[in-house]
């Protein structure tokens, strides 16, 4: 069953944002611009996650998680020795895309920093979600392993379709897939993480 969570703002990691913007050290001019971006972004950011915990079944040549049937090595490694896995989708919302779009017409420097900020925000959201899962799993003497996403390693992008079916991403989270299996809002992540018994 799919569950939905709304998070408070995860702590902002400026270093990571600057890394995405390919800035090696924070100089005052860039700092000021980044602060402006963060202030404006706060008006539109949402932190929405949908997830489902699924049993992992294995046949000779594939792993089965609900409607996902895969023989990916990347997934195999990520969920080896796991009887369960969590599938999740995280997004910071459509209005953030609109903000980037607006500044890509107006101020490419701000658009660049907003891109970087958005990338950092959605990753931090994933981290916050995994941390919370881990805290809950610890009570059952379990823990969450490193997450992997469609498009990484040998995981096909077509897995997005199955993840979307399981999590009802369009309806419950407002994330949609386009013809090329790219997600909108663009700052969205889908992932699988194995659950291991300690």
């Amino acid at each position: 069953m799919m569950k939905k969570l709304i998070f408070d703002e995860p702590v902002i990691n400026r270093k990571e944002i600057l890394r995405y913007a390919r800035v090696k050290d924070e100089i005052p001019d860039i700092s000021a611009l980044l602060n402006e971006c963060i202030e404006e972004a706060r008006g539109v950011l949402v932190y929405r996650v949908g997830y489902a915990v699924l049993p992992v079944q294995r046949t000779d040549n594939e792993m089965i998680l609900d409607v996902i049937h895969t023989s990916s090595n990347t997934v195999s490694k990520a969920i080896s020795h796991c009887d369960e896995a969590v599938i999740f989708a995280a997004t910071i919302g459509t209005e953030y895309d609109r903000l980037i779009l607006r500044y890509s017409r107006l101020s490419p420097s701000k658009a660049l920093l907003l891109q970087a900020l958005g990338a950092e925000r959605v990753e931090s959201l994933c981290d916050a979600f995994c941390q919370q899962m881990n805290t809950e799993l610890r009570l059952e003497e379990k823990s969450l392993r490193t997450r992997v996403s469609p498009g990484y390693g040998d995981i096909s992008l077509t897995m997005q379709k199955e993840i979307f079916a399981i999590l009802d991403c369009e309806r419950k989270l407002g994330i949609t897939l386009n013809n090329d299996l790219m997600m909108t809002p663009t700052k969205s992540v889908t992932a699988i993480a194995g659950i291991r018994k300690n």
């Binding site: 800035v23 090696k24 100089i27 001019d29 860039i30 611009l33 101020s107 420097s109 660049l112």
Partner: peptide, 11 residues
């Protein structure tokens, strides 16, 4: 200088 600065000048 970094990319954001290049862009700020361009703007």
């Amino acid at each position: 200088v970094y990319l954001p600065q290049l862009l700020m000048s361009a703007e």
